[in-house]
């Protein structure tokens, strides 16, 4: 392998993820990354670009994004207007063809990393519309009778939050990796990056309460890394003594965003909460 991806200074990567990235690069396949919010999916593409010294092109997908926009846009209206005033040479259609992010990645003089961020936000058929282009790495512009062929196969990273399921035909062509939620040890390292001077006891208690919260079955939205960081900030600013953290979970609203979740956790807290030892066989507690 010419190039292999590894840790960078500010991005920690698990061995499994590193291998998946390198497999995708070696096979020239798009890498599909799934995982809970806050597990660093989007950051991965930047880390790959940094690690290999390549340029990163980001294509942010929204619910209105069409596959065609990633290839090129033909600005007909501009051309019509220009033809009216006669101060442009409108016979050259090429000046009205604007390449999209995918097109940009194809014509780049050197290899680039292309991030297609949150592909599940788009229309159901969106991934299928890109199958051909991602497979053979070229597309045809009928207006100019040109074929845009990738000079260097870009490294394609696609992220998904699993809001929509992706079509099978698309999945078959991808290398897939699911980033698991960081465990306590890893999370402690992540928190340390953001709060280098945090008191040890406070961190331990906060993490204990945080993972207890996440273990509660039936939460509609589990708190993620960014909520944990906000919460720790709130605890520090509020000057909460660490002894109180897991018993009361102050500033619960920072961690939980849904009303029902809030009530559920309050009920659990009243009946003992995080101070009780977690049950040995997983936390799927259920009453009568």
């Amino acid at each position: 392998m010419k190039k292999t991806f590894d840790h960078t200074a500010d991005y920690l990567v698990s061995d499994e993820l590193r291998d998946a990235v390198n497999i995708a690069i070696a096979l020239g396949r798009p890498l599909l990354i799934k995982g809970e919010p806050g597990t660093g999916k989007t950051m991965l593409a930047k880390a790959i670009a940094d690690s290999l010294g390549l340029r990163l092109i980001v294509w942010n997908i929204k619910s209105t994004t069409k596959a065609q926009e990633g290839l090129y846009v033909y600005d007909t209206v501009q051309r019509l207007y220009d033809s009216q005033f006669g101060d442009h040479d409108v016979s050259d259609i090429r000046q009205y063809i604007k390449l999209g992010k995918l097109g940009e990645a194809f014509v780049s003089d050197e290899q680039v990393v292309l991030l297609i961020d949150e592909i599940d936000k788009a229309d159901l058929e969106f991934p299928n519309d890109l199958l051909w282009e991602l497979d053979v790495m070229n597309f045809y512009i009928p207006e100019t009778k040109e074929t845009i062929q990738a000079r260097h196969r870009p490294i394609v990273v696609i992220t998904s939050n699993a809001e929509k399921e992706l079509p099978d035909a698309f999945l078959r062509r991808c290398i897939f990796h699911y980033i698991a939620f960081p465990d306590e040890e890893m999370m402690a390292r992540i928190v340390r990056v953001h709060f280098p001077d945090l008191e040890k006891n406070l961190l331990a208690e906060a993490l204990k309460a945080f993972y207890w919260l996440r273990s509660i079955g039936g939460l509609q939205k589990k708190p993620s890394t960014s909520e944990l960081l906000d919460w720790i900030q709130a605890l520090v600013v509020g000057g909460v003594p660490y002894q109180r953290i897991s018993a009361e979970i102050p500033f619960l609203g920072v961690l939980l965003k849904k009303n029902q979740d809030f009530e559920l956790v309050l009920r659990r807290l009243q009946s003992g909460g995080a101070q009780k030892a977690p049950p040995a066989f997983g936390a799927n507690r259920r009453g009568w």
Binding site: E16, D19, L27, C174
Partner: peptide, 21 residues
């Protein structure tokens, strides 16, 4: 790409063959 280990084989197989967690 699998290297010489069963571990590498496991990761390679999972990344290529499995498309959903």
């Amino acid at each position: 790409l699998a290297g010489a280990s069963l571990h590498g084989f496991y990761r390679l197989a999972r990344a290529v063959l499995v498309k959903s967690e």
